[in-house]
Every structure is written in structure tokens, then in C-alpha cells.
Nucleic acid binder design. Structure first.
Lengths: 216, 216
DNA sequence: TGATTTCCGTACTAACTGGCATATAATTAG
DNA sequence: CTAATTATATGCCAGTTAGTACGGAAATCA
């Protein structure tokens, strides 16, 4: 709302908050995909009329790409926060999965899973920019998990034979399967069980030097 | 082509093969999703004009649901074949992943991953029938893997502590991550590495009674 | 006050959408 | 041959699509 130093810009003030509107546009795409969401839908959900949408975000594809970036930025932040806490591997993984689940299960019209899985995957074949965003997203999540496993290994929470790269691909695969399962309507309890099984499998792998810390 | 006992049906013969046309329609949806594929697209890809499409498969959604079922049937068959061979767990898993990868990487316009992940996931929030098909698909694949792990456990390829249910969710998660990665453009070698890491992790879990059969 | 800047709202366009009515072609039955 | 049957082909429909032109509204600046 307030601009630089409270100095309002020159002309008629906007009646929307660009960040809020972007989030609302994302919600719309999240429910019905890129192709399945019309400008009328976007207009309704954001409360902006089409010319304003254009002025603010460009055409439909540009708007969609901006929502993708916003989503990625949010996830990046969440993963970084989980890593920064510096807690044991098990807890870090659990926190990431729990955070992710919260996000996947919200939504007025039912659980929607991961935004990328639900919308970008469909568009990726035909649209190089979306495909690149999807690829970047996969690399980022892999990287985050790899970092977690590397640290755990350095702290001897994992044995010397543990392969952070390999564990990271499995750990991120769990995120995507949770996304799909959420979208298919599976209840939270089932999803949590999936995550817990995976944490168990991952943390009890990689050699004999594992810590046997059961329960929370 | 040939009908029952060579007896041709009454009127003008069709100029298309329903099975081939269904496959072609599937290819179209696979590339651009349900909403992103128009009846014109379908008409072009199948070589059928719209009235023929309607007569053969019903409306767009009915056609799409039929392609989903066909895809599921194909995958069911492939998994059953891999299980029926009765080979060691490692080899069974490897075969399933290799089969799946072949399917995910084919396509004129680039790798397309899993049909369900690429198309049904997007539609699942808004469309109960698609959501149900997606849920069914997840259950089926989980079930197939569970069967594989149960058998392996019975043959002492896995230790008594191994949990077939938990392993199955991880194993199927790998399939979906392969689908996403393929769709994001990752090369076959990278995908194979993902699969191999997962096989390694899965097969070397679950207690002490594991067979240490390295390499092929 | 009036000029300037920025944004909003209506209404429009040309193209495309899913679906269907109708006419015609190709085949079998008698 | 004619009638009946089944498929294809053309073309239309009303509704929707993404995108834009244009005039008015709301603010600042002088």
C-alpha cells in the first residue's frame, strides 16, 4: 500500500494489491490448470478487470509464469527455513513434509497438491518456458534435500556409505507422490503415513552409524 | 479389422480402427492436456471428423476417460508381466522402471512422462470422475509393488522387518518422480540413475536377511 | 483551478470452442 | 435393382476465448 517514504505515485491509485492478486491468480490456475482457466476466471478471482490484469502482469502466459516464480520462491523459503533450524535429520525431513502437506491440502475446492505438479507438468511438453521452470524447480528441491543429507552425514547422523545425492532424489520423490495423492483425494492421515514411512526408510539407511532415535 | 467370423456388419464400413484412434487421441491429450486439446486437434490426430468421434466415443470427456482406462489397462498388464516372471526383487523392480521409462520417454514432441501425471492430475480437482480414476491408478500401482515386496519377503529376499506397504509407497513414488523428471526434460541417463539409486535403497533395507547381489 | 498521469470499466473484435443437424457416400439384405 | 443401414463430410450454431480500443474516474502537480 504505502509507497517509498509514503510518497504516493502520480495518477489514480490502484485498487488491488499486486501480491494478493498474484496469489489469487495462482489459486485460480491451481484449481483448473493453465488452459482450463480463462481470463474471465482470473478476472473474477482477482477482482481485477482484464485491462488491469494486462497492465499489471502482461498476457495470460506471463501472468502464469509469474505465479510459478512466486510459488517457487515460497517453497525455497520454506525449505531454507527447515534447514536453517539445524535440527536432526529426522526432524528436518518431518518438518519439510509437514509444511508441504499443509500447503497441498489447503484450498476451498479440495486438496490441490503441488502447484507445479498440478499445472506446470501439463504445460511442460508444449511450452519450453514452463518446462524450464519445472526443471529448475526439480533441481532446487533436489539441492535442498542434498544439503540436508550432506549435513547429516557430516554430523554422523548418516553412515559414511550414505549417498546424499541418491537420498535426495528419493526424498523429493516423496514430495511429488504426496502431491499426487493429495490431488487424488487421499486423506491427511494416509499422506502422513507415506511421509513417515519414507522418513523411516531414508534415515535408517546408509550404513551402521545411524542414531536410533525413535519417536519425536 | 475382421469382425466375428468374417461376417461384415451391415452398413458402410468404418475407415478408422477404434483402438488406433483411441491411442491417437491419447497422444493428443498427452501432449497438451485435456483442456488444452480441442476437438479440432483430436479430429486431426485421429483422422476422424467430429461426428465420427462422437459416434465412436461420446463427447470429449467420455473420450478422455476412455483413454485413461486404456492407459491404466496397459500399465496393469506391464506390471503383471514383470511380476509373473518371478525373478528376484531387484530385477523385477529394474524391469518395471525400465519399462516405465521407455513409455515416459517416447513421443514425437519430446518426453511426456506418465499420462496420468501429465493430464489427469490437472483435471482431478475440478472433475470427480478423473479424480477417481487417478485415485484408482495410485491404488493399483501401490498394490502391484506391494505384491512384489510381499513375495520377496516370503522368499527371504527381504528381512522380516521389511514393510511391504511402506516400501510400495516409496517404489511407486519413484515412478511418479520419473514421470515428472521426464516431462521436465531430464535425459534418460539421469532418470536411470534415479531408478537405480531407489532400487538400491529399497532392496538394501528391511533387516539383516538381505542378499548382497551387486551388479546385474 | 486545470493540466497531467495513472488506472478502471464497458464494450468490442476476430478467432476458436464443443456440439450437432443435415446431406451424402458406401455397404448389405432382399 | 431398391430399401435399409451405417459411416463420413460439410457446415452451422450459440457460447466462449484471449486480447484491445476508448472514454471516464481518481489521484497529483503547478
Amino acid at each position: 500500500m504505502v509507497q517509498n517514504e509514503g510518497a504516493r505515485p502520480r495518477g489514480r491509485p490502484r485498487e488491488y494489491d499486486p501480491e494478493v492478486a498474484l496469489q489469487q491468480a495462482m489459486d485460480a490456475f491451481w484449481d483448473t490448470g493453465f488452459s482450463g482457466t480463462s481470463l474471465d476466471d482470473l478476472s473474477t478471482r482477482t477482482g481485477m478487470n482484464r485491462p488491469s490484469l494486462y497492465a499489471a502482469f502482461g498476457d495470460k502466459q506471463a501472468l502464469y509464469l509469474k505465479t510459478l516464480e512466486a510459488y517457487l520462491a515460497g517453497r525455497r523459503e520454506a525449505v531454507a527455513a527447515a534447514l536453517a533450524a539445524g535440527r536432526p535429520l529426522r526432524e528436518t525431513l518431518r518438518e519439510i513434509y509437514e509444511t508441504v502437506l499443509d500447503r497441498f491440502l489447503e484450498g476451498d475446492r479440495g486438496a490441490r497438491g503441488c502447484y507445479l505438479v498440478g499445472t506446470a507438468a501439463t504445460e511442460a511438453v508444449d511450452n519450453p518456458e514452463v518446462r524450464e521452470a519445472l526443471a529448475r524447480s526439480l533441481r532446487e528441491l533436489d539441492g535442498g534435500f542434498r544439503e540436508a543429507f550432506s549435513r547429516a552425514k557430516a554430523r554422523s547422523e548418516l553412515g559414511p556409505e550414505a549417498d546424499p545425492e541418491a537420498l535426495a532424489t528419493v526424498a523429493s520423490a516423496i514430495v511429488y507422490t504426496l502431491a499426487l495423492r493429495a490431488r487424488a483425494g487421499q486423506p491427511r492421515a494416509a499422506l502422513r503415513k507415506v511421509a513417515d514411512s519414507a522418513v523411516q526408510l531414508i534415515c535408517s539407511s546408509g550404513g551402521p552409524t545411524r542414531k536410533r532415535r525413535r519417536g519425536r
